[in-house]
Design a protein around this nucleic acid. Structure first.
Lengths: 209, 209
DNA sequence: ATTCATACTGAACAAATGTCCAGCTACGGG
DNA sequence: CCCGTAGCTGGACATTTGTTCAGTATGAAT
């Protein structure tokens, strides 16, 4: 990986900061104005060097099309589709998108990682407690749930129980569905009414404490 | 909050999808092309309606300056920065960016989720085996490693042992570092030479099998 | 029948923006 | 001394892009 000059690092940082804060990719003239260049060509020269070194790419001739590329990413790899997955601490009732719910940020994941359709309604569920420790799902983890997907036996699902959404393993016994906790300290759940499955867990994310 | 017409919802969604996936805000002509309008003015009319209803804002006269304003989202929320994290099955030796390594795709995660600096050198490591089951890290998981971060006692680290990179818990005993497997079937590792730490695990991702 | 809102078409223009060319200075290495 | 690289200046041009104006069609409400 080529080293960046000091000026190149500054310019790359400026582009990144603008995209983070204003959500707007700066133009060559805006970059030139920031660094007090008298010409957009100076900015263009640095940007071209950064592109040659694999830190930036653009769409030639298109306005504000600079994109920061992670240096270790393979070249010309089609950029995977990212979905923004809201994370909920709990979902007391109803639909994930109810505004009254306790939202705890979001996470961006590409759909290939999740193995789901880009249009799927997906949300994250903050795991509380240790009922799923047998499947190495621990307190604080974030379960990525695909809403509306029909569960298969063995799937970890988000189910609505007593007005709370909780994770359990979905199984069938003699054709009847039930939910199994993966911790012997918790009982299985055999619903008397129709089971309300919010969705199936498609991925798990654990963050550093 | 004003209701959106069907077409307005479609156009808003198109803008959001482009920003999420391509990271590039579409122009009025690109919106018109997508919806097969014959005139950018049609797209402009919808965009102006969305701005009047508070779902979009722009910088007048500036290219690609449409920004989605989520009515329920906090104001001025900084857009999360996504890093593309390459996933390696193993890292036999040396540096993660060695091209000869066995790469198994990548994952995009925003840096806030990872809790790291955007410039950090980060890679994913496919977990093999069950040596870390005591910390609920199982075979097939993807450990997101921040390269070069100094480990603290208790951190899970990617260490180079016998030419292989493996995950272990980093600890010190009487000032000397050693590595603990989180499975009683595996011994602790007290290195005779300097410990080669590739990085610290900052997150874990588990995908549906 | 009229009015209003929605959803466009068509054309033109000004400004923004990327790109190119020619050129300069300073510095380090051979 | 010469060459290559980095880091700019200055200017010009082509293209992209936002914006404006005038207009039509449709459906719903009055």
């Amino acid at each position: 990986m080529n080293e960046l000059t000091e000026r190149q690092q500054q310019i790359l940082g400026f582009i990144q900061e603008n995209q983070d804060s204003a959500g707007l990719t700066p133009t060559l003239r805006e970059i030139a104005a920031h660094f007090r260049f008298n010409s957009p060509n100076a900015a263009l020269a640095h940007v071209q060097a950064l592109m040659a070194k694999g830190f930036l790419r653009n769409r030639p001739g298109r306005a504000r099309s600079l994109q920061v590329v992670a240096p270790n990413a393979p070249k010309n790899r089609p950029r995977p589709r990212v979905v923004s997955v809201p994370i909920y601490g709990s979902i007391p009732a109803g639909r994930p998108e109810d505004a009254a719910q306790e939202e705890e940020g979001c996470v961006l994941i590409d759909v290939t990682t999740l193995g789901i359709q880009p249009t799927a309604r997906t949300f994250g569920l903050k795991v509380r407690g240790d009922s799923m420790i047998g499947k190495s799902i621990v307190d604080g983890d974030i379960a990525i749930i695909e809403h509306g997907a029909p569960p298969r036996p063995g799937d970890v699902v988000a189910a609505l129980i007593d007005g709370q959404v909780t994770l359990k393993t979905f199984l069938r016994q003699r054709g009847k569905p039930y939910l199994r906790a993966e911790n012997p300290r918790y009982p299985n759940l055999i619903p008397q009414e129709e089971l309300l499955i919010q969705g199936v867990m498609v991925a798990l994310i654990r963050q550093r404490q």
